[in-house]
Amino acid sequence: MKIIVDLDKCQNYGQCTFEAPTVFALDNDGVLVYQTEADSALADDVNAAADVCPMQAITIIHD
């Protein structure tokens, strides 16, 4: 599963980090860092993260 975050849209609210903490995190400056690939076992969490993103900035491409 590939993960793309539109960083022009992302406002670093961090909502995604609560749903899928192994994939999304805020760095020390509060800026989003994320993995661009995730195991399909994490699909539920990553989908939930995309749901709760206030900017709807997260796109998931399933393999």
Partner: peptide, 9 residues
Amino acid sequence: RTRELATYR
């Protein structure tokens, strides 16, 4: 204060 706020949740 987004990052610190998370610790309160």
